[in-house]
């Protein structure tokens, strides 16, 4: 990894949140964990993250709203969004993509696929970084 990548995990189920965090930390990402929509909104307003792992059915503010807000915030314009949700209907996936989600994984998701998606995004970020600083 060329640069340090910051990931925020927005997931209300503690075990699933911990599961993703453990694996991403092992891959060298800097991980922050939040467990509801309002904390996610607060942290995303304060800081820029490279990647957001986002659940949809959250207490309070749902993941679709968070997704929209990230894309509306110019500071987070280069933030990648990976949705992980139990919602598996085509219309939910389509809606998430329309709101700007880059990747949509349905629960129960394969950890290997989640990791490879995040690593691919990270590699693209590195390429962009190299081009910009060439």
């Amino acid at each position: 990894m060329t640069t340090e990548k910051r990931v925020i995990i927005v997931e209300d189920d503690k075990d699933i949140n911990d599961l993703i965090a453990y694996n991403l930390r092992k891959e060298g990402f800097v991980v922050e964990q939040v467990f509801d929509g309002s904390d996610a909104r607060k942290r995303l307003a304060e800081e820029v993250f490279n990647i957001v792992i986002l659940d949809i059915m959250l207490p309070g503010i749902d993941g679709f709203d968070i997704c929209r807000e990230i894309k509306e915030n110019p500071k987070q314009a280069r933030t990648f969004i990976v949705v992980v949700s139990a919602k598996c209907r085509q219309q939910d996936k389509l809606y998430a993509h329309l709101l700007g989600a880059d990747c949509y994984l349905t629960k129960p998701f394969s950890l290997l696929i989640l990791l490879s998606a995040v690593k691919e995004i990270s590699a693209n970020l590195d390429k962009e970084f190299l081009v910009k600083n060439a």
Binding site: D15, I16, L19, Y22, A86, K87, C88, P108, F109, L111
Partner: peptide, 20 residues
């Protein structure tokens, strides 16, 4: 289906983590 998928996600994810 949501109630079933949530524990299943943890089971599958942690098994994969252990295997990896």
């Amino acid at each position: 289906s949501h109630e079933l998928k949530t524990p299943l996600t943890s089971i599958k994810g942690f098994v994969e983590t252990l295997l990896e």
